[in-house]
């Protein structure tokens, strides 16, 4: 029994070591969103330059959609962009865009003209009004919003084909099944 007592420090060390080792593998930037299963914040964004309609929280009611925060200055958004175009082509789900923090109001529209516009509606958010309301910490971030206007998931970082197949699509399918059953 006395012998076993000497093993206690070792056991404590082992537990701490395991936790620290797990911590090393975690990304301190991927914060859990507190907005999951909460209603989308209310916002009303003006259109970006050259576009007629802006984007408000009302536009999200009645269907499952993606809300994508992007910016022409954001390199990861550039990586994500072709896949959003692909999603638009497939017509799986409407994608709404929040053009975040453009220094030059023409930069966003120019970027979309060059690479294509995958968005149903786009709002201009030069002062992070909507971005802060969504708890955004960087771009790109994408939210899955269900037909009741409730946030169901937050994707931090670009949507790639893998992210789509493994995470987003199964979630969206599940939401669709549930909304049909309800």
């Amino acid at each position: 029994m006395r012998r076993l007592a000497y093993l206690v420090p070792l056991a404590v060390f082992a537990v701490v070591a395991v936790y620290l080792a797990l911590g090393l593998g975690m990304d301190p930037r991927s914060l859990p969103s507190v907005l999951i299963n909460k209603p989308v914040p209310e916002f009303a964004l003006k259109p970006i330059k050259g576009y007629e309609r802006g984007f408000t929280s009302e536009d999200l009611k009645g269907k499952i959609s993606l809300v994508n925060i992007f910016g022409s200055w954001c390199i990861a958004c550039r990586i994500e962009h072709p896949f959003l175009m692909e999603l638009k082509k497939r017509g799986t789900i409407p994608i709404y865009g929040i053009d975040w923090r453009e220094e030059d109001p023409i930069a966003g529209p120019k970027w979309l003209a060059q690479f294509g516009d995958p968005y149903t509606l786009i709002g201009d958010d030069p002062e992070s009004k909507a971005a802060i309301a969504f708890g955004v910490t960087g771009a790109p971030e994408t939210f899955i919003v269900d037909e009741t206007g409730t946030i169901r998931y937050k994707q931090v970082g670009p949507i790639t084909a893998d992210v789509w197949e493994e995470t987003l699509k199964p979630l969206i399918d599940e939401l669709r099944r549930r909304s049909k059953a309800g």
Partner: peptide, 23 residues
């Protein structure tokens, strides 16, 4: 500051920190 996580928004030059200060 959510961008440079160990600074306060009062200390940070990040644009998101600026927008939070304004808010």
């Amino acid at each position: 500051c959510l961008v440079c996580q160990n600074q306060s928004i009062d200390d940070s030059d990040a644009s998101l920190a600026r927008d939070l200060r304004v808010l």
